[in-house]
Amino acid sequence: MSVNLEKGQKISLDKEAGSALSRVVMGLGWDAVKSKGFFGFGGGSAEVDLDASCILFDTDNRPLDVVWFRQLKSKDGSISHSGDNRTGAGDGDDEQVNVSLGSVPANVKSIVFTVNSFTGQNFSQVQNAYCRLLNAADGKEVARFNLSVQGSHSAQIMAKLYRHNGEWKMHAIGENGTGRTFDDLMPQIAQHL
C-alpha cells in the first residue's frame, strides 16, 4: 500500500515496503500543457520539461555528487537517471532515478531529490505532476507526492533519503522554490540537511 506523502512527513522505507529495500526508484511524471489555438482551433501542447535530480551529501553536509540530465550516473555507479524527457508525453513516469541503496558509498549520509521546471512554467500550469518512490524489486509504489496542486513556483525540494541507525529513511520535504536546475535550490536544500 502506498503512502501519500505530506510536507514534513518522515517514513521508514523498510517498514512501508514490508521488507528491507535494496533498490528504490524515484519516478517523476507529468502531462503536457494543453494550449488553445487561434479561436479555439488547432490547439496543441506546449512543451513542459520538468527535471528530476538528486544530490548526494556527506556527513558534513557537503555535496559529493549529483545525478541529473547532464550527468546520468553517479561517479560511484550506485545511482542512475533514465534520461531527460522534455515533453511529459506518454503514460507513467517520464523520468526515473534508480538508487541501489546497498551500493551507495558509506560516506554518503543523505540523498536529496528535486524537481525543476527547466522550461520555466510554474507547477500551476503543469497537469498531473507527481513524484513517487518504488521498490525496484517488485515495482510496488512505496510513497507518492502529488505536485499538480502546488501553486505558482517552478521548483520543489521533494524528499530526502537519509541513513539513520543503519536503515534508510525518507523525509518528505515538499518545499517550494524557484529555478531551472537543482543548483538554484542549493541554499534552500542546505536548511534541510
Rank of each mutant, 00 (worst) to 15 (best):
M1I: 07
S2D: 12
S2C: 05
V3C: 00
L5N: 03
L5Y: 02
E6W: 05
G8Q: 03
Q9E: 15
K10F: 01
I11G: 09
S12T: 08
L13G: 02
L13F: 10
D14R: 11
K15D: 08
E16S: 07
G18C: 04
G18W: 01
S19N: 07
S22V: 00
S22L: 01
G27P: 02
G27Q: 11
L28F: 13
D31A: 12
A32S: 15
V33T: 13
K34Q: 11
K34M: 03
K34S: 09
K36G: 03
G37D: 10
F39Y: 12
S45D: 13
V48D: 03
L50T: 07
A52D: 12
S53D: 14
L56M: 14
L56V: 15
F57S: 00
D58F: 05
D60N: 11
R62H: 10
L64S: 00
L64F: 00
D65A: 13
V66A: 12
V67P: 11
W68E: 14
Q71F: 05
Q71Y: 09
L72C: 02
K73D: 09
K73G: 03
S74E: 12
K75M: 04
S78A: 15
I79L: 04
H81G: 05
S82H: 13
G83D: 08
G83K: 14
D84R: 07
N85I: 02
N85R: 04
R86I: 11
T87E: 14
G88E: 03
A89D: 14
G92R: 13
D94C: 07
V99E: 03
G102S: 09
G102D: 09
G102Q: 08
S103G: 01
K109M: 07
S110R: 08
V115P: 07
V115L: 10
N116T: 15
N116P: 06
N116A: 14
S117W: 14
F118A: 08
F118Y: 15
T119F: 15
G120V: 02
F123V: 00
S124M: 06
Q125P: 00
V126L: 11
N128G: 03
A129T: 13
C131N: 03
A136Y: 02
A136S: 10
A137V: 07
G139C: 00
K140T: 12
E141S: 02
R144P: 02
R144W: 06
R144F: 09
F145R: 00
N146L: 06
L147C: 07
L147D: 09
L147G: 08
S148L: 06
V149R: 01
S152C: 06
H153N: 14
S154A: 13
A155R: 10
I157P: 04
K160Q: 13
Y162I: 07
R163N: 01
H164I: 01
E167N: 11
E167T: 05
K169E: 09
M170R: 02
I173C: 05
I173P: 04
G179K: 14
T181S: 15
F182L: 10
M186D: 04
P187L: 04
Q188K: 10
Q188P: 00
I189D: 04
I189C: 04
I189N: 08
I189M: 12
I189W: 07
A190E: 15
A190C: 10
L193E: 10
